[in-house]
Nucleic acid binder design. Structure first.
Lengths: 118, 118
DNA sequence: GGTAGAACCTACCTAAAGGTAAGTGCCAAA
DNA sequence: TTTGGCACTTACCTTTAGGTAGGTTCTACC
């Protein structure tokens, strides 16, 4: 609406990527799913600190983006697991350089964030 | 506090990267700065849709993270420009695969986002 | 003298993301 | 029979990122 001509965002796909994996926990969820399927409760414990509500919410969004698939075994007690799709894997791969950058610059970056340290 | 042992986030540097370039406009700002210094007003026009308040806010955060530098010419009328640092350049490079992913999957990704379309 | 533009600052408001706490149906183990 | 775990759901509240709309100081231009 407010973009005049040849939307500058179009050249830089970051908006797309951010729309898919942006959010406080999605990167972490993806990280924990990268090595295979995980059950809901399993994931909940792995992604320490996340609430069930938010976890399921993020999983739904990832699923509706085609990044993960939900598999319901239809058993009782309930058994459900989540797996990264091949498409999701391409995202994870594109994410890796940024992961590495983060790991390399963790100290430096958090040092500059002093204004944010409570 | 709620993290038991060997914080899972530590393995995946995405939290660091997101802390630095996360936010609605930072990727775009970086994108527009990648090819050289830009004056404030210039940037304001380039990043169409952003308000001055938010632009300056994001620039300050990028600057305090060491990703860009603010140069004040001390002239009157005011002249200030912003440049990406070498450190910032390493971020931009780590960002590129994600950009490309976004560009490649723009259609697919936005198609899955139907639930978000207003 | 009035207007415009430079690079901001300030106060206030809104919307959405995320967090908290409780409840659901069902079954197995204590 | 109470408890606990599974995979959720629901209602409600808080935080914060971002947006809106003004103001400021100075000069240049008409």
């Amino acid at each position: 609406m407010s973009v005049p001509r040849s939307d500058p965002a179009s050249d830089c796909g970051l908006d797309v990527a951010l729309a898919v994996m942006g959010g406080k926990w999605k990167p972490l969820i993806l990280y924990h799913l990268r090595s295979g399927p995980r059950r809901f409760g399993d994931l909940k414990r792995a992604v320490a600190g996340i609430s069930e509500k938010v976890l399921i919410q993020q999983l739904r969004e990832l699923a509706s983006a085609g990044v993960v698939v939900r598999h319901d075994y239809g058993e009782v007690p309930p058994k459900v697991d989540y797996t990264v799709t091949p498409f999701g894997m391409t995202l994870i791969e594109a994410l890796l350089p940024l992961c590495e950058w983060g790991v390399r610059n963790r100290t430096r970056a958090s040092a500059s964030m002093t204004s944010r340290a409570s």
